[in-house]
Nucleic acid binder design. Structure first.
Length: 311
DNA sequence: AGTCAGGCAACGC
DNA sequence: GCGTTGCCTGAC
């Protein structure tokens, strides 16, 4: 990973988890620039739509925004002003656009949806600014492995604990931020150390996944870049603790596979109550892919947020 | 204070 | 194949 440390041109400093906190001074005012995008975008809704958990609200020089690490790098700072413009540091703009999916055509995605689906139309009107993020595959998979039977608040707290104990610390705006630890680090840490992050039975799943990824038995870059979505899902579900739901989340939010359609209890509810579908498991997934089309994952994200806020 | 979550594997039939 | 059950923890 190029420039993994100090990409804010000296504004932040990296420390390993056992190092002492460096004193922090702003070397210069942040040079925020507009990060352009086409179509609707809500930074707040995207960060609160249950696909990503570790970003913090931060105010820098009067800009209310969010900061967080992207993979091993970070933290990045983002602020969306009342006029809808997104601002970030100049050098970060291309990475921010890619991470938040601002480089895609929402128009084309929406055009691929069934045009007579009033439920989906209603959901899009409810939260038009949600984007699908492109998170680094490993941290996305790992975070969703810890998500089973958990509410969002606790998924976030587990993610932050794992980051604080095993990730790399950065200082930014007078606060600490942590990257997600690589698979090798969690493999070396051991199951009990992960259990101590209050993961409960998920510690076994996360540790085994970390071992298989670290050893190369499971190659996430092959899954991400070389396999079809069906093949990739089959590969991911070989991991202990990873079923269709978690595999689909990793593919949708970590590999940009918009044809992956995660089905959780909220999706089951809205598909049952508003679409009158009482199918289960793979049959329900197959119906959804057929109905919503090649960007069904995008449709899922609108519907999920809509269901969670209104059902 | 209990209840129950944004699942999964291991069973039982 | 399908339906049930145990699993850790903490937010509500």
């Amino acid at each position: 990973m190029a420039h993994s440390v100090g990409h804010l041109s000296g504004v932040n400093k990296a420390q390993n988890q056992h190092g002492s906190l460096p004193s922090h001074e702003w070397d210069e005012k942040p040079r925020l620039v507009k990060a352009p995008y086409d179509g609707a975008f809500s930074l707040h809704d995207t960060l609160r739509s249950g696909q990503i958990f570790h970003w913090d609200e931060v105010t820098v020089d009067g800009f209310n925004g969010y900061a967080g690490c992207m993979g091993e790098r970070g933290p990045f700072f983002l602020a969306q002003t009342d006029d809808g413009m997104l601002h970030t540091l100049m050098d970060d703009a291309p990475d921010v656009q890619r991470y938040f999916g601002l480089d895609v055509s929402l128009r084309e995605i929406h055009a691929s949806f069934p045009q007579n689906d009033t439920v989906l139309s209603e959901a899009i009107l409810f939260c038009p600014g949600i984007r699908i993020t492109r998170q680094p595959m490993w941290e996305c998979l790992a975070t969703f492995i810890t998500s089973s039977m958990k509410q969002v608040a606790h998924i976030r707290s587990m993610s932050l604990t794992i980051r604080e104990r095993f990730g790399t610390r950065y200082e930014f705006a007078g606060r600490s931020f942590y990257s997600y630890p690589p698979a090798q680090v969690l493999a070396d840490a051991g199951e009990e150390a992960l259990r101590a992050c209050s993961l409960g039975y998920r510690a076994k799943s996360l540790h085994r996944a970390a071992c298989e990824v670290a050893s190369g038995k499971i190659d996430l870059s092959v899954i991400e870049n070389e396999l079809s979505t069906d093949e990739a899902r089959a590969e991911l579900t070989k991991l202990y603790g990873v079923g269709d739901k978690i595999a689909n989340c990793a593919l949708l939010f970590g590999a940009g596979r918009w044809d992956a359609f995660p089905i959780d209890v909220w999706m089951e509810r809205i598909l049952r109550d508003r679409y009158r579908k009482r199918l289960k498991g793979p049959k329900l997934q197959a119906w959804a892919i057929r109905h919503f089309g090649p960007c069904c994952g995008y449709a899922q994200q609108y519907l999920f947020h809509f269901a969670r806020k209104t059902l």
